[in-house]
Simulated assay, not measured.
Amino acid sequence: MKVVVVSDGPFGERAYDTIKKEFECEYIVLDIPKPESIDDFTEFPNEQLEKIKSADILITYTLNPDITFDLVEQVYDNVGYVIVGAWKGKGLKNQLESFKNVICPDIMCELVENGNKIFDEFVSKFGKPKVEIKVENNIATKINVIRDSPCGGTDFVAKDLLGKNISDIAVKAGLRIQHYPCRAGRIRLFSDEESGRYKAATFHHDAFEKALKKKSGE
């Protein structure tokens, strides 16, 4: 599987660093000339466009909504699935998701399988956190990350909590993800940042709690 992460500036590199550990991955910072008017159609460099079209999974972290829409519109038919990591407003979300293979998650660590073979292969490794915990004498002696958040936050939390008492490990997981620091919500102009951070904390809390319940046979 080939994953291409596309950015127009500040976001995306951390996802690239995480994803390349599991899949072939390329990070592209778009080189786009400033349009002369707001009505101009975005022209992407041919070399970059061809690399993007070769992706099985395309993840966009472009903050300009016009660039995001123009890019997705030009390539969605060539790639397996598009994950829009940064989007602004429900109107844009609805437009983008009208394409057959595009998803605009509120935060990247909420991704779960949807029945699409290519998307599900990616989400088997990255998306909503999933862990397994080995416990001895109420201590987490081993924490396996089954599914990491695309930013690498789940792995960060797992390493931090290794060797800790399990009595409050789920609560600590929810707190520690925000010390990564979690960027959930920061890349959406009209989003509630605190809501995004709360979701990320809840997902990590629940992942560790579920792992403990599975371990105890509940």
Rank of each mutant, 00 (worst) to 15 (best):
F99S: 00
R176W: 04
E110Y: 03
S167T: 15
L175A: 09
S54M: 04
V79K: 05
Y61L: 09
Y61F: 15
A211I: 12
K199L: 13
L63E: 08
E113L: 01
V4K: 06
V145Q: 14
I67Y: 11
K199A: 13
G91T: 12
N137V: 08
K90F: 08
V4D: 08
D77L: 00
E97I: 00
G152K: 05
P35D: 15
I57N: 09
Y16M: 05
G152T: 05
R147N: 07
R183F: 12
K215Y: 15
F69D: 01
L30S: 08
R186L: 15
F41M: 09
G185F: 09
I52R: 02
D155S: 14
P35L: 09
V102G: 01
E24N: 10
G185H: 10
F23R: 07
K210H: 15
K90L: 10
D77C: 01
E110T: 15
P105H: 07
I103E: 02
V4H: 05
G85P: 04
S98C: 00
W87E: 00
I32S: 03
V145W: 15
Y180V: 13
Y16D: 07
I169N: 05
N138L: 09
L189K: 15
F156P: 04
V79Y: 06
N101Y: 03
N101L: 01
Y76G: 06
S124E: 10
E22V: 11
D77M: 03
R176L: 12
F44H: 07
I139G: 10
G163C: 04
F122D: 02
K34W: 14
F122G: 03
K100Y: 08
G152M: 07
N64T: 02
V112E: 15
K93L: 03
R183K: 14
V135I: 15
G80Y: 05
N64R: 02
P181W: 13
E132N: 12
T18K: 07
V102P: 03
N101A: 04
R176I: 10
F23K: 10
A201M: 03
G174V: 03
T62W: 02
A184I: 01
M108I: 02
E113I: 01
E132D: 10
K117H: 11
A211P: 12
Y16C: 08
E113M: 03
K210C: 12
L49D: 13
C151F: 05
Q74A: 10
V102S: 00
V79I: 08
A207E: 13
I187T: 13
A140K: 11
I38A: 14
K117C: 00
D120H: 08
Y76P: 06
P45F: 06
M108K: 00
V79S: 09
A184K: 01
N46D: 15
V79A: 06
E110L: 08
V123T: 14
V72A: 00
K159I: 08
L63Q: 13
L189N: 13
A140R: 11
S195T: 14
L162A: 00
K128H: 14
D148P: 11
S216M: 14
K125D: 00
L212N: 05
D155I: 09
S149M: 09
P181Q: 13
T141A: 05
I32G: 03
P35W: 12
N144I: 04
N165C: 07
M1C: 05
I28C: 07
R197L: 11
G91I: 07
I19N: 07
E110W: 02
K214T: 14
N101F: 02
S191Q: 14
